[in-house]
Simulated scan of single mutants.
Amino acid sequence: MSAITSRRHRKRKLKAEINVVPYIDVMLVLLIIFMVTAPLLNLGVDIELPRSNAKSMQEKKDPVIVSVDAAGNYFLTVEAGSNEALTPGELEARIGAIVRQNPQVPVFVAGDGTANYQKVMDAMVLLQRAEVERVGLMSQPSGEGAE
């Protein structure tokens, strides 16, 4: 009888370890699923944007328009006047003076469709250096032809 009681008194030590084998199994299954599905994902989606009959925004003030032609030359149109060809330095100085005089004047950049995109971005950088807070990009709806 003493052998039976001695077995009862010898208790098994409790393990304080987490069994991670099920977690490893789940992780491997997820890894396989992601490896199989990753090549099937499309990076780009072809969409057709909705058409709108909305009217263009009406500004109270005549906008200042900086135009970039196909050759990369800059032109400035102020208050529906004629285009003036300017160098980048002259453009920055003129726009800076106009914006300091009237900070709320709308400023737009109109780039020729065949113009180098870098020249349009350079015009926007010039406007930023001239402390123009908001710059709009002009476009022409696809239904209307250029004249």
Rank of each mutant, 00 (worst) to 15 (best):
K61R: 06
Q101I: 08
G96I: 02
K11A: 11
P22K: 11
G145Q: 12
A110M: 03
L86G: 06
G136P: 01
Y117C: 00
N73E: 11
S142D: 10
G136V: 02
Y23T: 03
L31R: 04
P141I: 04
R51L: 09
L137P: 04
E131C: 02
A97C: 01
T87V: 04
I95K: 00
Y74N: 01
A54M: 08
N19F: 11
F34D: 01
L41D: 04
E147P: 12
I95L: 01
I18W: 14
I95F: 09
L30R: 07
K55L: 13
L137R: 12
Y74W: 04
E59D: 08
K60H: 12
M124E: 11
G111W: 01
A54H: 11
S82L: 10
I32P: 03
L126G: 03
K13T: 10
Y117A: 09
I32Y: 07
P63H: 12
P63C: 10
S142E: 10
V29R: 04
P106R: 10
Y74E: 02
S67P: 02
V21L: 09
V68L: 03
R8M: 15
N102M: 12
Q118H: 15
E147S: 13
V99P: 00
P50H: 12
E84R: 09
A38C: 09
T87K: 05
M138E: 07
R94T: 00
D46F: 15
L49M: 11
V64G: 04
L40I: 06
G81W: 12
E79W: 07
V105Q: 04
E17H: 09
N42F: 13
N19R: 05
K13A: 14
I32V: 15
L28D: 01
A93L: 07
E131N: 14
E147D: 06
P106L: 05
N42Y: 14
G44T: 14
F34P: 00
L86C: 05
L127K: 02
R51Y: 07
